[in-house]
Write a protein that binds this DNA or RNA. Structure first.
Lengths: 210, 210
DNA sequence: TAGATTGTTAATCGATTAACAATC
DNA sequence: TAGATTGTTAATCGATTAACAATC
Protein backbone atom coordinates (compact mmCIF):
# COMPACT_ATOMS: atom_id res chain seq x y z
CA UNK A 1 0.00 0.00 0.00
CA UNK A 2 1.86 3.06 -1.29
CA UNK A 3 1.03 5.88 1.11
CA UNK A 4 1.13 9.41 -0.14
CA UNK A 5 3.34 11.92 1.55
CA UNK A 6 0.47 13.75 3.20
CA UNK A 7 -0.82 10.57 4.82
CA UNK A 8 2.56 10.08 6.45
CA UNK A 9 2.44 13.68 7.62
CA UNK A 10 -0.97 13.15 9.13
CA UNK A 11 0.12 9.96 10.87
CA UNK A 12 3.06 11.87 12.31
CA UNK A 13 0.72 14.58 13.59
CA UNK A 14 -1.56 11.99 15.16
CA UNK A 15 1.48 10.45 16.77
CA UNK A 16 2.65 13.69 18.34
CA UNK A 17 -0.79 14.67 19.51
CA UNK A 18 -1.56 11.30 21.11
CA UNK A 19 1.91 10.86 22.58
CA UNK A 20 1.77 14.34 24.10
CA UNK A 21 -1.68 14.02 25.60
CA UNK A 22 -1.39 10.42 26.67
CA UNK A 23 -1.44 9.68 30.39
CA UNK A 24 0.54 6.49 30.01
CA UNK A 25 -2.49 4.44 31.00
CA UNK A 26 -2.64 1.32 28.81
CA UNK A 27 -6.42 1.44 28.64
CA UNK A 28 -6.74 5.15 27.87
CA UNK A 29 -8.73 5.88 24.72
CA UNK A 30 -8.79 8.73 22.24
CA UNK A 31 -11.67 9.44 19.88
CA UNK A 32 -11.40 10.39 16.24
CA UNK A 33 -13.04 13.73 16.90
CA UNK A 34 -10.60 14.58 19.70
CA UNK A 35 -7.76 14.08 17.25
CA UNK A 36 -9.63 15.85 14.45
CA UNK A 37 -10.46 18.88 16.59
CA UNK A 38 -6.89 19.28 17.78
CA UNK A 39 -5.54 19.08 14.25
CA UNK A 40 -8.34 21.07 12.61
CA UNK A 41 -9.49 18.34 10.31
CA UNK A 42 -12.45 16.06 9.64
CA UNK A 43 -12.97 13.15 12.02
CA UNK A 44 -13.93 10.81 9.17
CA UNK A 45 -10.48 11.22 7.68
CA UNK A 46 -8.88 10.29 10.99
CA UNK A 47 -10.94 7.09 11.12
CA UNK A 48 -10.05 6.31 7.51
CA UNK A 49 -6.36 6.74 8.23
CA UNK A 50 -6.49 4.61 11.36
CA UNK A 51 -8.45 1.92 9.53
CA UNK A 52 -5.80 1.96 6.79
CA UNK A 53 -3.05 1.10 9.27
CA UNK A 54 -5.14 -1.64 10.83
CA UNK A 55 -6.31 -0.07 14.08
CA UNK A 56 -9.81 -0.95 15.21
CA UNK A 57 -11.73 1.33 17.51
CA UNK A 58 -14.54 0.65 19.91
CA UNK A 59 -17.92 2.36 19.45
CA UNK A 60 -18.77 4.76 22.28
CA UNK A 61 -15.17 4.60 23.53
CA UNK A 62 -12.71 5.42 20.78
CA UNK A 63 -9.29 4.05 19.94
CA UNK A 64 -6.79 2.77 22.48
CA UNK A 65 -4.01 5.36 22.53
CA UNK A 66 -1.32 2.74 23.10
CA UNK A 67 -2.56 0.69 20.14
CA UNK A 68 -2.62 3.69 17.81
CA UNK A 69 0.89 4.71 18.82
CA UNK A 70 2.20 1.19 18.28
CA UNK A 71 0.51 0.91 14.89
CA UNK A 72 1.96 4.22 13.70
CA UNK A 73 5.41 3.23 14.92
CA UNK A 74 5.07 0.00 13.01
CA UNK A 75 3.89 1.54 9.75
CA UNK A 76 6.44 4.33 9.78
CA UNK A 77 9.19 1.92 10.78
CA UNK A 78 10.06 3.57 14.07
CA UNK A 79 10.19 0.19 15.78
CA UNK A 80 13.06 -1.00 13.61
CA UNK A 81 16.66 0.13 13.93
CA UNK A 82 18.52 1.81 11.06
CA UNK A 83 22.04 3.08 10.84
CA UNK A 84 22.69 6.39 9.14
CA UNK A 85 25.75 8.47 8.34
CA UNK A 86 26.20 12.20 7.87
CA UNK A 87 28.14 13.29 4.82
CA UNK A 88 29.42 16.84 5.07
CA UNK A 89 30.56 18.23 8.40
CA UNK A 90 29.62 21.87 8.03
CA UNK A 91 27.44 23.79 10.42
CA UNK A 92 24.28 22.04 9.37
CA UNK A 93 25.86 18.59 9.47
CA UNK A 94 27.18 19.30 12.95
CA UNK A 95 23.79 20.57 14.10
CA UNK A 96 22.13 17.39 12.88
CA UNK A 97 24.84 15.24 14.47
CA UNK A 98 24.20 16.81 17.83
CA UNK A 99 20.43 16.46 17.58
CA UNK A 100 19.48 13.65 19.90
CA UNK A 101 15.94 13.07 18.66
CA UNK A 102 16.53 10.47 15.96
CA UNK A 103 17.00 7.43 18.16
CA UNK A 104 13.40 7.72 19.26
CA UNK A 105 12.41 6.96 15.68
CA UNK A 106 14.83 4.11 15.18
CA UNK A 107 17.61 6.02 13.44
CA UNK A 108 21.13 5.81 14.80
CA UNK A 109 23.82 8.06 13.38
CA UNK A 110 26.96 5.98 13.42
CA UNK A 111 29.56 8.06 11.57
CA UNK A 112 30.33 11.37 9.88
CA UNK A 113 32.30 11.92 6.70
CA UNK A 114 34.12 14.87 5.18
CA UNK A 115 36.97 15.34 2.76
CA UNK A 116 38.40 18.40 4.48
CA UNK A 117 41.64 17.21 6.18
CA UNK A 118 41.19 19.84 8.88
CA UNK A 119 37.96 18.23 10.02
CA UNK A 120 39.17 14.63 10.11
CA UNK A 121 39.17 13.00 13.49
CA UNK A 122 37.20 15.87 14.99
CA UNK A 123 34.52 14.82 17.42
CA UNK A 124 31.01 16.03 16.59
CA UNK A 125 28.11 14.96 18.76
CA UNK A 126 30.13 11.98 19.96
CA UNK A 127 31.14 10.92 16.45
CA UNK A 128 34.53 10.95 14.82
CA UNK A 129 34.84 12.50 11.37
CA UNK A 130 36.17 10.07 8.77
CA UNK A 131 37.50 10.61 5.25
CA UNK A 132 35.12 9.86 2.39
CA UNK A 133 37.18 6.90 1.21
CA UNK A 134 36.24 5.10 4.41
CA UNK A 135 32.56 5.30 3.50
CA UNK A 136 32.25 1.92 1.68
CA UNK A 137 33.84 0.10 4.61
CA UNK A 138 31.53 1.63 7.18
CA UNK A 139 28.43 1.17 5.04
CA UNK A 140 29.19 -2.49 4.48
CA UNK A 141 30.25 -3.13 8.05
CA UNK A 142 27.34 -1.76 10.09
CA UNK A 143 25.41 -1.92 7.67
CA UNK A 144 24.29 1.62 6.90
CA UNK A 145 21.15 2.26 4.84
CA UNK A 146 20.69 6.04 5.06
CA UNK A 147 22.99 8.96 4.20
CA UNK A 148 22.23 12.47 5.41
CA UNK A 149 23.71 14.80 2.83
CA UNK A 150 24.87 18.17 4.18
CA UNK A 151 27.68 19.03 1.79
CA UNK A 152 27.97 22.29 -0.19
CA UNK A 153 25.70 22.39 -3.26
CA UNK A 154 28.55 21.94 -5.71
CA UNK A 155 29.61 18.65 -4.09
CA UNK A 156 26.14 17.20 -3.60
CA UNK A 157 25.88 15.07 -6.74
CA UNK A 158 29.37 13.61 -6.38
CA UNK A 159 28.88 12.78 -2.71
CA UNK A 160 25.52 11.20 -3.49
CA UNK A 161 27.10 9.08 -6.20
CA UNK A 162 29.75 7.87 -3.77
CA UNK A 163 27.10 7.03 -1.20
CA UNK A 164 25.08 5.04 -3.73
CA UNK A 165 28.19 3.24 -4.93
CA UNK A 166 28.89 2.30 -1.33
CA UNK A 167 25.46 0.72 -1.06
CA UNK A 168 23.32 3.40 0.56
CA UNK A 169 19.60 2.88 -0.03
CA UNK A 170 18.14 6.26 0.90
CA UNK A 171 19.43 9.83 0.90
CA UNK A 172 18.19 12.72 2.99
CA UNK A 173 19.29 15.63 0.85
CA UNK A 174 19.76 19.03 2.54
CA UNK A 175 21.57 20.53 -0.45
CA UNK A 176 19.74 22.44 -3.17
CA UNK A 177 20.48 20.45 -6.33
CA UNK A 178 18.04 17.79 -7.40
CA UNK A 179 20.12 14.65 -7.38
CA UNK A 180 20.16 12.34 -10.38
CA UNK A 181 20.30 8.81 -8.99
CA UNK A 182 19.17 5.27 -9.82
CA UNK A 183 15.50 4.57 -9.21
CA UNK A 184 16.13 2.12 -6.39
CA UNK A 185 17.60 4.87 -4.23
CA UNK A 186 14.99 6.78 -2.27
CA UNK A 187 15.65 10.52 -2.03
CA UNK A 188 13.95 12.94 0.31
CA UNK A 189 14.75 16.57 -0.48
CA UNK A 190 14.78 19.06 2.34
CA UNK A 191 15.39 22.21 0.28
CA UNK A 192 15.16 25.14 2.61
CA UNK A 193 13.85 27.27 -0.24
CA UNK A 194 10.49 25.53 -0.40
CA UNK A 195 9.71 26.67 3.13
CA UNK A 196 11.09 30.08 2.32
CA UNK A 197 8.82 30.34 -0.72
CA UNK A 198 5.78 29.64 1.40
CA UNK A 199 6.80 32.30 3.92
CA UNK A 200 7.61 35.07 1.46
CA UNK A 201 4.41 34.24 -0.40
CA UNK A 202 2.39 34.58 2.78
CA UNK A 203 4.08 37.86 3.68
CA UNK A 204 3.53 39.26 0.20
CA UNK A 205 -0.16 38.39 0.10
CA UNK A 206 -1.11 38.93 3.71
CA UNK A 207 -2.39 42.47 3.15
CA UNK A 208 -5.06 41.19 0.79
CA UNK A 209 -6.36 38.72 3.35
CA UNK A 210 -9.04 39.30 5.99
CA UNK B 1 -5.97 33.47 -5.27
CA UNK B 2 -4.98 31.21 -2.38
CA UNK B 3 -2.34 28.89 -3.75
CA UNK B 4 -1.99 25.48 -2.22
CA UNK B 5 1.32 24.44 -0.80
CA UNK B 6 2.14 22.09 -3.62
CA UNK B 7 1.67 24.77 -6.25
CA UNK B 8 4.29 26.87 -4.49
CA UNK B 9 6.57 23.84 -4.44
CA UNK B 10 6.11 23.34 -8.13
CA UNK B 11 6.77 27.01 -8.89
CA UNK B 12 9.96 26.73 -6.87
CA UNK B 13 11.01 23.68 -8.88
CA UNK B 14 10.29 25.48 -12.14
CA UNK B 15 12.34 28.38 -10.87
CA UNK B 16 15.37 26.28 -10.06
CA UNK B 17 15.20 24.33 -13.29
CA UNK B 18 14.85 27.40 -15.49
CA UNK B 19 17.40 29.47 -13.58
CA UNK B 20 19.91 26.62 -13.75
CA UNK B 21 19.50 25.92 -17.43
CA UNK B 22 19.08 29.52 -18.54
CA UNK B 23 21.78 30.97 -20.75
CA UNK B 24 21.12 34.51 -19.65
CA UNK B 25 19.78 35.39 -23.08
CA UNK B 26 16.73 37.66 -22.68
CA UNK B 27 15.00 36.04 -25.66
CA UNK B 28 15.67 32.43 -24.70
CA UNK B 29 12.54 30.32 -24.46
CA UNK B 30 11.62 27.20 -22.54
CA UNK B 31 8.71 24.91 -23.44
CA UNK B 32 6.24 23.37 -21.04
CA UNK B 33 7.37 19.89 -22.03
CA UNK B 34 11.03 20.69 -21.36
CA UNK B 35 10.08 21.68 -17.84
CA UNK B 36 7.69 18.77 -17.47
CA UNK B 37 10.23 16.20 -18.64
CA UNK B 38 12.92 17.48 -16.32
CA UNK B 39 10.57 17.41 -13.35
CA UNK B 40 8.78 14.17 -14.29
CA UNK B 41 5.35 15.69 -14.58
CA UNK B 42 2.62 16.44 -17.11
CA UNK B 43 3.20 19.37 -19.45
CA UNK B 44 -0.43 20.47 -19.19
CA UNK B 45 0.03 21.10 -15.49
CA UNK B 46 3.05 23.27 -16.19
CA UNK B 47 1.02 25.38 -18.62
CA UNK B 48 -1.83 25.62 -16.12
CA UNK B 49 0.55 26.81 -13.41
CA UNK B 50 2.19 29.36 -15.68
CA UNK B 51 -1.19 30.62 -16.87
CA UNK B 52 -2.23 31.00 -13.22
CA UNK B 53 0.66 33.36 -12.52
CA UNK B 54 -0.06 35.37 -15.64
CA UNK B 55 2.68 34.24 -18.02
CA UNK B 56 1.70 33.92 -21.68
CA UNK B 57 3.61 31.63 -23.98
CA UNK B 58 4.06 31.69 -27.71
CA UNK B 59 2.88 28.73 -29.83
CA UNK B 60 5.73 26.89 -31.51
CA UNK B 61 8.26 28.70 -29.30
CA UNK B 62 7.41 28.31 -25.65
CA UNK B 63 7.71 30.68 -22.71
CA UNK B 64 10.37 33.34 -22.34
CA UNK B 65 12.63 32.10 -19.56
CA UNK B 66 13.25 35.60 -18.23
CA UNK B 67 9.52 36.32 -18.07
CA UNK B 68 8.76 33.11 -16.23
CA UNK B 69 11.52 33.76 -13.70
CA UNK B 70 10.30 37.30 -13.10
CA UNK B 71 6.70 36.15 -12.70
CA UNK B 72 7.65 33.49 -10.17
CA UNK B 73 9.77 35.97 -8.24
CA UNK B 74 6.82 38.33 -8.18
CA UNK B 75 4.26 35.77 -7.03
CA UNK B 76 6.48 34.25 -4.37
CA UNK B 77 7.58 37.67 -3.17
CA UNK B 78 11.28 37.24 -3.92
CA UNK B 79 11.43 40.70 -5.45
CA UNK B 80 10.48 42.40 -2.21
CA UNK B 81 12.75 42.82 0.80
CA UNK B 82 11.90 41.39 4.21
CA UNK B 83 13.76 41.54 7.47
CA UNK B 84 13.94 38.45 9.62
CA UNK B 85 15.43 37.56 12.98
CA UNK B 86 16.68 34.28 14.39
CA UNK B 87 15.47 33.37 17.86
CA UNK B 88 17.60 30.73 19.53
CA UNK B 89 21.34 30.63 18.93
CA UNK B 90 22.02 26.91 19.15
CA UNK B 91 23.73 24.89 16.47
CA UNK B 92 20.79 25.02 14.10
CA UNK B 93 20.27 28.75 14.60
CA UNK B 94 23.95 29.38 13.94
CA UNK B 95 23.87 27.20 10.83
CA UNK B 96 20.94 29.16 9.46
CA UNK B 97 22.61 32.46 10.34
CA UNK B 98 25.66 31.54 8.33
CA UNK B 99 23.64 30.36 5.33
CA UNK B 100 24.04 33.04 2.69
CA UNK B 101 21.25 31.94 0.38
CA UNK B 102 18.31 33.90 1.78
CA UNK B 103 19.16 37.30 0.32
CA UNK B 104 18.55 35.93 -3.15
CA UNK B 105 14.92 35.44 -2.16
CA UNK B 106 14.49 38.81 -0.52
CA UNK B 107 15.04 37.78 3.07
CA UNK B 108 17.63 39.60 5.15
CA UNK B 109 18.52 38.27 8.59
CA UNK B 110 19.17 41.35 10.69
CA UNK B 111 19.60 40.07 14.25
CA UNK B 112 19.82 37.02 16.48
CA UNK B 113 18.33 36.59 19.92
CA UNK B 114 19.02 34.31 22.85
CA UNK B 115 18.50 34.43 26.58
CA UNK B 116 21.67 32.60 27.48
CA UNK B 117 24.05 35.26 28.94
CA UNK B 118 27.04 33.29 27.67
CA UNK B 119 25.93 33.78 24.09
CA UNK B 120 25.15 37.49 24.27
CA UNK B 121 27.33 39.64 22.07
CA UNK B 122 28.73 36.60 20.29
CA UNK B 123 29.08 37.07 16.56
CA UNK B 124 27.34 34.49 14.38
CA UNK B 125 27.42 34.86 10.62
CA UNK B 126 28.16 38.54 10.99
CA UNK B 127 25.35 39.13 13.48
CA UNK B 128 25.55 40.04 17.14
CA UNK B 129 23.45 38.03 19.57
CA UNK B 130 21.02 40.17 21.56
CA UNK B 131 18.95 39.43 24.66
CA UNK B 132 15.29 38.57 24.11
CA UNK B 133 14.10 41.75 25.82
CA UNK B 134 15.60 43.74 22.94
CA UNK B 135 13.32 41.95 20.47
CA UNK B 136 10.41 44.46 20.50
CA UNK B 137 12.79 47.35 19.81
CA UNK B 138 14.44 45.66 16.85
CA UNK B 139 11.15 44.43 15.40
CA UNK B 140 9.63 47.89 15.56
CA UNK B 141 12.75 49.64 14.34
CA UNK B 142 13.63 47.75 11.14
CA UNK B 143 10.76 46.64 10.86
CA UNK B 144 11.01 42.86 11.12
CA UNK B 145 8.20 40.65 9.82
CA UNK B 146 9.61 37.12 10.14
CA UNK B 147 11.04 35.18 13.07
CA UNK B 148 13.03 31.99 12.57
CA UNK B 149 12.49 29.91 15.67
CA UNK B 150 15.37 27.62 16.60
CA UNK B 151 15.01 27.39 20.36
CA UNK B 152 14.76 24.14 22.34
CA UNK B 153 11.30 22.53 22.17
CA UNK B 154 10.39 23.48 25.72
CA UNK B 155 10.94 27.19 25.03
CA UNK B 156 9.26 27.30 21.63
CA UNK B 157 5.78 28.42 22.66
CA UNK B 158 7.05 31.13 24.99
CA UNK B 159 9.50 32.49 22.44
CA UNK B 160 6.78 32.47 19.78
CA UNK B 161 4.46 34.39 22.11
CA UNK B 162 7.14 37.00 22.67
CA UNK B 163 7.75 37.30 18.94
CA UNK B 164 4.06 37.78 18.25
CA UNK B 165 3.75 40.32 21.05
CA UNK B 166 6.63 42.22 19.47
CA UNK B 167 4.73 42.39 16.19
CA UNK B 168 6.12 39.50 14.15
CA UNK B 169 3.80 38.44 11.32
CA UNK B 170 5.19 35.05 10.36
CA UNK B 171 7.12 32.33 12.17
CA UNK B 172 9.38 29.71 10.64
CA UNK B 173 9.23 27.04 13.32
CA UNK B 174 12.10 24.54 13.49
CA UNK B 175 11.05 23.26 16.92
CA UNK B 176 8.76 20.24 17.30
CA UNK B 177 5.76 21.62 19.21
CA UNK B 178 2.80 22.84 17.23
CA UNK B 179 2.55 26.48 18.24
CA UNK B 180 -0.75 27.92 19.40
CA UNK B 181 -0.90 31.45 18.01
CA UNK B 182 -3.43 34.02 16.79
CA UNK B 183 -4.82 33.39 13.32
CA UNK B 184 -3.19 36.45 11.80
CA UNK B 185 0.27 34.99 12.41
CA UNK B 186 1.43 32.70 9.62
CA UNK B 187 3.34 29.64 10.82
CA UNK B 188 5.42 27.33 8.69
CA UNK B 189 6.50 24.19 10.53
CA UNK B 190 9.77 22.57 9.57
CA UNK B 191 9.55 19.53 11.87
CA UNK B 192 12.46 17.32 11.05
CA UNK B 193 10.37 14.30 12.00
CA UNK B 194 8.11 14.55 8.95
CA UNK B 195 11.07 13.98 6.66
CA UNK B 196 12.33 11.27 8.96
CA UNK B 197 8.95 9.52 8.83
CA UNK B 198 9.07 9.43 5.05
CA UNK B 199 12.57 7.96 5.10
CA UNK B 200 11.99 5.27 7.70
CA UNK B 201 8.75 4.39 5.94
CA UNK B 202 10.56 3.99 2.64
CA UNK B 203 13.30 1.87 4.23
CA UNK B 204 10.75 -0.32 5.98
CA UNK B 205 8.72 -0.99 2.86
CA UNK B 206 11.42 -1.05 0.23
CA UNK B 207 11.74 -4.85 0.25
CA UNK B 208 8.16 -5.22 -0.89
CA UNK B 209 8.70 -2.93 -3.86
CA UNK B 210 9.84 -3.89 -7.34
C1' DT C 1 -32.13 0.79 26.81
C1' DA C 2 -30.42 5.18 24.75
C1' DG C 3 -26.93 7.37 22.81
C1' DA C 4 -22.16 8.15 21.48
C1' DT C 5 -18.89 6.61 18.44
C1' DT C 6 -17.12 3.59 14.96
C1' DG C 7 -16.89 1.74 10.18
C1' DT C 8 -18.27 2.10 5.49
C1' DT C 9 -20.81 3.38 1.48
C1' DA C 10 -22.15 7.15 -1.38
C1' DA C 11 -21.59 11.99 -2.74
C1' DT C 12 -18.77 15.79 -3.37
C1' DC C 13 -14.96 18.30 -4.35
C1' DG C 14 -10.72 19.63 -6.35
C1' DA C 15 -6.71 18.58 -8.75
C1' DT C 16 -4.63 16.28 -12.65
C1' DT C 17 -4.74 14.55 -17.23
C1' DA C 18 -6.58 13.99 -21.93
C1' DA C 19 -8.16 15.93 -26.02
C1' DC C 20 -8.07 19.23 -29.31
C1' DA C 21 -8.87 23.70 -31.42
C1' DA C 22 -6.25 28.07 -31.81
C1' DT C 23 -2.03 30.12 -32.97
C1' DC C 24 2.13 31.60 -35.02
C1' DT D 1 2.00 26.11 -45.65
C1' DA D 2 2.88 22.48 -42.20
C1' DG D 3 3.68 21.48 -37.84
C1' DA D 4 4.96 22.35 -33.08
C1' DT D 5 3.31 24.34 -29.12
C1' DT D 6 0.07 26.99 -26.48
C1' DG D 7 -4.43 27.65 -24.12
C1' DT D 8 -8.70 25.76 -22.64
C1' DT D 9 -12.56 22.74 -22.23
C1' DA D 10 -14.00 18.20 -20.98
C1' DA D 11 -12.97 13.78 -18.74
C1' DT D 12 -10.80 11.34 -15.27
C1' DC D 13 -8.96 10.36 -11.11
C1' DG D 14 -8.26 10.37 -6.28
C1' DA D 15 -8.89 12.33 -1.98
C1' DT D 16 -12.04 14.37 1.32
C1' DT D 17 -16.48 14.85 3.30
C1' DA D 18 -21.33 13.62 4.21
C1' DA D 19 -24.59 10.37 5.56
C1' DC D 20 -25.96 6.72 8.16
C1' DA D 21 -26.27 1.93 9.64
C1' DA D 22 -23.75 -1.04 12.95
C1' DT D 23 -22.11 -1.49 17.47
C1' DC D 24 -21.36 -1.67 22.29
Amino acid sequence: MPFKHTVLERLMHYYYFIADSWSGDEAAAVTSSQIADALHMDDTLVRKDLAAIGVRGQPRVGFKAAEVLAAIRGVLGFDKAYNGVIIGVGRLGSAIASYGGFERFGLRICAMFDNDPIKLGLMQGGLVVLAMDKLPLVVADKPVRLAILTVPDENAQEAADQAVAAGIEAIWNFASPNLVLPDHVFVRNEHISVGLAELTYSLTHRDSRA
